[in-house]
């Protein structure tokens, strides 16, 4: 760390003012804290905090509004994109995002997810996929991998009995209303930088009312997966990425 002429420390990195001082309730190693930070950094750096309204889900990120220092609404389970639709339609010149987990977005809220994107709502949908219901204690999620052991698939997910993990991101990319669809992660600094770029591009396109931007973040759940954070990230790379490969899924011509 460098020291300036008058002896005070130079600030090279700090918490964006779009994050509150509240300590998060997230488990050690959980991706949510990083994803919150990246999202809030982008909003801060773009100078759009005063024009942004976020919608939190039910799930581990149910308390997102405690950490994001912007106007927020907390939606019912699965309904964040419907709530965000209501917000965006009456505030057509503001920036709106929803933030949901896999159970919220791809199980109970599948209908809202598809129809919000099909209408091309000018919002950013952040989809955090860690293949498990973290908040309720590690039950099977729509994106739990085949064979994955959870508290409700104690013998492993049997796809013949309960179906395959749902690739909802690939599904919704087919909809004309989806403008920009990508999958990222936050387990390395390089991945964080890519996600940041994706969030920024999404908010930029919101200004032009191009349609829905949908960013999946493949993340971990050390507590639910019963691993330490390092093991969890390794397991994620080895097992989640082959089924949910990071990268752009639908890239508008202007972003190519």
């Amino acid at each position: 760390m460098s020291t300036t002429m008058n002896g005070t420390m130079e600030i090279v990195y700090e918490k964006p003012k779009t994050l509150t001082d509240n300590p998060t309730h997230y488990c050690p190693g959980c991706g949510h804290g990083v994803i919150h930070r990246v999202l809030m950094e982008v909003i801060n750096e773009m100078g759009i905090a005063e024009q942004t309204v976020g919608v939190a889900p039910v799930g581990c990120s149910v308390f997102a509004y405690n950490y994001m220092n912007i106007d927020m609404q907390e939606a019912a389970h699965g309904r964040a994109s419907a709530v965000a639709t209501g917000v965006r339609r009456v505030l057509p010149d503001k920036f709106v995002f929803s933030y949901q987990g896999d159970g919220d977005l791809a199980a109970i809220g599948t209908g809202e997810t598809i129809h919000t994107i099909n209408r091309g709502e000018n919002i950013l949908m952040v989809f955090v996929n860690n293949g498990i219901y973290g908040m309720t204690g590690g039950q099977m999620a729509p994106t739990s991998l085949c064979g994955m052991i959870t508290s409700t698939t104690p013998y492993g997910r049997d796809e013949h009995f309960i179906g395959h993990p749902l690739k909802i991101t690939e599904m919704i990319a087919q909809l004309p209303g989806a403008y920009y669809v990508a999958r990222h992660s936050v387990h390395t600094p390089a991945a964080v930088r890519k996600l940041k770029k994706a969030f920024k591009a999404s908010f930029e396109s919101q200004k032009e009312k191009k349609g829905t931007c949908f960013i999946e973040v493949v993340s971990n759940c050390p507590s639910g997966w019963k691993m330490n954070p390092l093991e969890a990230n390794e397991w994620m790379e080895k097992n989640m990425f082959p089924y949910f490969p990071p990268g752009d899924i639908k890239l508008p011509a202007t972003m190519k």
Binding site: V53, V55, Q73, A75, A76, R79, A82, V83, A84, T85, G86, V87, R88, R89, V90, L91, G111, E112, H115
Partner: peptide
């Protein structure tokens, strides 16, 4: 109707 009432929630909250 589920979506309707949640859109109402969002708009009312705004």
């Amino acid at each position: 109707e589920v979506a309707s009432i949640n859109m109402v929630y969002g708009a009312a909250g705004a």
